[in-house]
Design a protein around this nucleic acid. Sequence first.
DNA 1: GTCTATAGGACGATAGAC
DNA 2: GTCTATCGTCCTATAGAC
Lengths: 173, 173
Amino acid sequence: MALFEERGYERTTAAAIAARVGVTERTFFRHFPDKREVLFDGEAVLRTALTAAIAEAPGALGPLATLFWSFRSIRPLLENNRPYSEPRHALIAGTPALYERELAKTAALTDALADALRLRGVADLRAALAARTGMAAFVHAVIAWLEDPEPGLGERLERTFAETVALVAEAGH
Amino acid sequence: MALFEERGYERTTAAAIAARVGVTERTFFRHFPDKREVLFDGEAVLRTALTAAIAEAPGALGPLATLFWSFRSIRPLLENNRPYSEPRHALIAGTPALYERELAKTAALTDALADALRLRGVADLRAALAARTGMAAFVHAVIAWLEDPEPGLGERLERTFAETVALVAEAGH
DNA sequence: GTCTATAGGACGATAGAC
DNA sequence: GTCTATCGTCCTATAGAC
């Protein structure tokens, strides 16, 4: 992050990153399959936390309510991580190659959520649609919060969930 | 597509594509900013059709109903394109680098839909959330249809819209 | 005369093969 | 760790269209 903020992502070579931590360029590529991945280690933590939450959510909840419940439950994780994730978000948003990778990670997470719903007995396509719809709200709320800390993440999530309900209700006549 | 289906995307060099159409590698890169882009020319057509439809949708419709109306209206475009888009989808789904680019195009399209909604007077964040939610349904329906032609796209869209309404209604208590 | 397209040579960086 | 293929950029030159 220090190097990227200094010279920008594209003008920072993999060799320069490697040199900064005292290894060779080849060693860098042994740890990360490509240069973008160096910024996306955290995704696994988020996926683990969310799929665990889905498994533990109250059994009475429907698919989308389960997701909303899970998103609420990992709020502390996101809030604690903000000092790192906020500048990271700014860098990613301004770098097309990184933005593409971020989208791929989000898509992989969406698939994982759908699988976690299936484990709760939700039908195949229904689980996929619920995961997409839920992630649409979650990503919207988190990005809004990363770009403007007020109001807090909890408030952003609740407002977004409520607005999703309102938008869809209106479209359903 | 012929070359990609023959040897796979990654094992097809830009030079090979260029040679196939009788130009040099450098000329290839004058037409396409990078190798992936050669498969994503069509996105502009879809964006133009959808934003135009949003502008022409009945004024009484709310944001999400406007999107659903627009998705329905471009059905013929998608159906006519199926002979090309179906093998293309299979190739993209099996090639991570192409899948990432596809996600980026979808994200750009989502932004364009949000802007089109703003032109209809929808508030900023509300437009962004509606666009994300609508695209979640649209992409779900189109992918399901590309991977299995039965039932048709019209039926896939209606079922998906209805299921979105049901999922969200349930989550809203 | 200007605009647009192709071509050629050189080259840095990523990333894979070994 | 060594070696190298491929992607993608920079620069300049040339040919045809209008």
